[in-house]
């Protein structure tokens, strides 16, 4: 049972196409498993679309474009040639069935969701029970990974200076606030400290914009792992 969902504002930005690719993918991965959010997204998209293309509901924009009189005239010619240009070709786009991508962590094979089909992935690196494969999204300080935890593994207590998103793709893990299951969308910011442990193992999609920062005693020695997971 999915208990953790993206906040409304996040879904809104997602529908508007304003989120970075990494976070957009995170919401898609969650929505594929969550019919509640799927519906919210469909509804919001319909509303935003209606507002975007309805002149009367957007009078201000309409007025502004009337003021922009000169460019409107050139646009007309421009648009006419554009129509000819586009309709010149009779090709249509067909969609080939894409084979789902497989990924193997520690001898366990997973079928990846189709949203990850066209993202190149680095080789998996391992430390103890943790494995991570980087997703090559090239979003500067925002890093996205597939993180696999073998049964009994976990991430020592840590906090974040930025945000950390985890979408559980398979298996489960828990921290002091409860247990998380397949499909859960867990967004944490710098104010949280947690110590997730996966008893039976799990595969997560993670996005973070800063290295993890271990907070407790001896684990501070592990801070290189923080950069490893980030």
């Amino acid at each position: 049972m999915i208990k953790h969902h993206p906040k409304f504002e996040l879904i809104q930005s997602y529908v508007n196409g304003e989120l970075p690719a990494s976070l957009s993918i995170g919401i898609t991965l969650h929505a594929e498993l969550c019919s509640v959010c799927q519906q919210k997204i469909a509804q919001l998209t319909e509303q935003v679309a209606e507002r975007s293309f309805d002149e009367l509901s957007n009078p201000l924009l309409n007025e502004l474009s009337k003021l922009d009189f000169e460019s409107d005239i050139t646009d007309d010619d421009f648009f006419d040639s554009m129509i000819d240009d586009i309709t010149d070709s009779n090709d249509i786009d067909t969609f080939a069935e894409v084979m789902p991508k497989q990924v193997i962590f520690k001898d366990k094979s997973y079928t990846l969701p189709s949203a990850l089909n066209n993202i190149s992935m680095g080789k998996a690196a391992n430390i103890g029970k943790l494995s991570r494969a980087r997703l090559q999204l090239d979003e500067n300080e925002i890093h996205s990974n597939l993180l696999h935890i073998n049964p009994g593994g976990g991430v020592p207590e840590h906090t974040h200076k930025g945000f950390e998103l985890t979408v559980l793709l398979d298996g489960s893990f828990s921290d002091d606030r409860g247990e998380y299951h397949k499909g859960d969308f867990i967004m944490l910011d710098g104010s949280f400290t947690h110590n997730p442990i996966s008893e039976k193992g799990c595969l997560c999609y993670t996005v973070a914009n800063d290295a993890l920062h271990f907070t407790q005693g001896i684990n501070k020695l592990l801070n290189p792992i923080g950069s490893f997971i980030y």
Binding site: I83, D85, I92, F95
Partner: peptide
Amino acid sequence: MSNVWRKAHLFDANKGAATTWVY
């Protein structure tokens, strides 16, 4: 608009409004 021209066959009126699809 060129995607609309080339992908119009993928639009399904039963699934939603044309405005939603073009959006």
